[in-house]
Design a protein around this nucleic acid. Structure first.
Lengths: 320, 320
DNA sequence: CTGAAAGCGCTTACAG
DNA sequence: CTGAAAGCGCTTACAG
């Protein structure tokens, strides 16, 4: 019953011969005393803590953060790690402090997540020297690996949904394209796919990515006589404002106007008839970030994008 | 420059006299080497990790989990702790395993959160011996301290909103009261307050706490000629289904029917005109759970409830 | 086959 | 005023 023997038995190591007898005695004692390994001692000894830090800009305010965390949590569990989380809201001071704290605790890696919106961020200098992966954001200087949604593909899928339903004319886009990351890519994917089918976007109704802004923009536009057949909303909040404006004008979805939205998982659950949307797989994104971070080799500073998913609703009319 | 001296200087301890000279040299060296304390070593030495475990049933699926986490995270930071989170989804096996893992890591305490719904839970035996607090749920056997919303007060506030607006008759409740925890308390608070004003609930439209169930129940009810003046929805999803049914019947909110909902922060952001609701302060709940857990004395196995908050919308008509 | 010893990075009585 | 020593609970060369 020496520490050495106990350690070897408890860790099931077979690179050293142990007698059946000693083996049994250790097992018995462990069971009797309900022995549990003390991770803090192990952490010190091995300089690894089986934990990954997860920094998030905003935890409250939407359901994205929860989904990112859920995916990350599952991926961490799969490799026997635990998640150490901190909310960064409150300025760069908080961010740096949290990173340092996590480093002090010897986390094996850090995921930096943007839940508010897919964006380009300046990475904190405190992250230097850490194994780190960005989640739902990219580094302005592309200095870190990142996992983001494939917005270009999202635009393409939205176009595909409309084309499949037979739409060819009077298709408009709602939402400005000048948001940092997602907008231009979604719009580009959309127009490219339509181009390829010989179809043109009839126009863009510009508005901020907010419910009220979209509502007012679309209402005003309809009020002056616009009669689109289909609208592609570049964002979920835009989709909701658009929806309300369409109803407000006494028009029906999808009979009068078809609507398809990108990244609208949440609002899609609150309207009737159900909204057809192209959704960002946030849970999946969280999962992949942790896998990338903790994968065997050091992850290259590249941007990994995950395909979006079509959620079939009832807001797109079959033409003809 | 002995370890003893260094330790005393670095920890700013004044219960031992240190020469100015030694003090300076330690500070200099620390700055030059960018010394950072190794928490894993400290953890082992002090048997305390300045971290609190947070177990949650579901992280994805709604915005409640994120809000609970946000509050917990802030409270943890305030006392210099970090949050170690795990998602329990996946059965009791996962739950026990996560608790053990957290215990192995010597977390200073564990918060067990129910994000799916305020509920009564059977606490895992693995939690025995841990300092623990329940969040948004109570133990069936009341064996652990818990922080929950004050649903009774929520019902009272909903009544108050309607009374303040001059409502006295034709007030109905939507949603069954036979949900585990929240339903009966909300209904009781509501009727008590109305009773006190000499007003009666005209009736209850029974339905599950789900959008579709509420929609169908209210639609059918309105179809056979019911013409309520005001509806109190016992839950957010119920409120949304109710709203859709009212619109479906060609009635206007609030001109024809006033609606006030309890725990409807999320859907309230998606309807027009804005929904008046009595909301659960989930962020606050998360904050209090951590404070209770890590407060100086061992928390008593009582249920602590936090008051709800009225969110003024435009869905309640001023009568007369 | 098994045990004594060192060491992970800290803190803290204790003895100068 | 300062340093040598022990010890937190583990693992792992190393020597029997």
């Amino acid at each position: 019953v020496s520490p050495t023997t106990a350690s070897y038995v408890l860790n099931g190591r077979d690179d050293m011969r142990i007698s059946k007898e000693a083996h049994r005695r250790v097992q018995d004692a462990a069971a009797r005393l309900r022995y549990r390994q003390n991770r803090t001692a192990l952490n010190l000894r091995t300089k690894t803590t089986k934990s990954v830090g997860l920094l998030c800009d905003f935890l409250a305010g939407g359901r994205v953060a929860g989904q990112l965390l859920s995916g990350a949590s599952v991926a961490a569990r799969a490799i026997d790690h635990l998640l150490v989380v901190g909310e960064v809201a409150g300025g760069p001071g908080v961010e740096d402090a949290l990173i340092e704290e996590m480093a002090d605790r010897q986390v094996d890696g850090i995921v930096y997540a943007a839940a508010a919106a897919t964006s380009a961020v300046r990475v904190s200098r405190a992250l230097a020297g850490q194994r780190a992966v960005l989640l739902n954001c990219v580094a302005q200087d592309r200095s870190l690996p990142a996992v983001v949604p494939d917005d270009h593909d999202g635009g393409r899928l939205a176009a595909q949904v409309l084309l499949d339903a037979g739409h060819r004319t009077e298709m408009y886009v709602v939402g400005s394209a000048d948001t940092p990351v997602a907008g231009p890519a979604r719009l580009a994917g959309l127009t490219e796919r339509l181009d390829r089918a010989g179809v043109e976007v009839a126009g863009v109704v510009a508005c901020d990515w907010a419910v009220l802004s979209a509502f007012e923009a679309v209402r005003g536009w309809l009020a002056v006589g616009a009669r689109p057949r289909a609208l592609v909303c570049l964002d979920g909040r835009v989709a909701l404002g658009t929806w309300q404006a369409v109803e407000d004008a006494g028009l029906r979805v999808p009979a009068d106007i078809s609507i398809v939205a990108i990244d609208a998982d949440e609002p899609a659950q609150w309207v009737r008839p159900t909204l057809t949307s192209v959704d960002v797989p946030y849970v999946e994104l969280g999962r992949r970030a942790v896998q990338l971070l903790m994968g065997s080799e050091e992850p290259p500073a590249r941007v990994f994008s995950a395909p979006m998913r079509v959620r079939q609703g009832a807001s797109v009319n079959a033409e003809r």
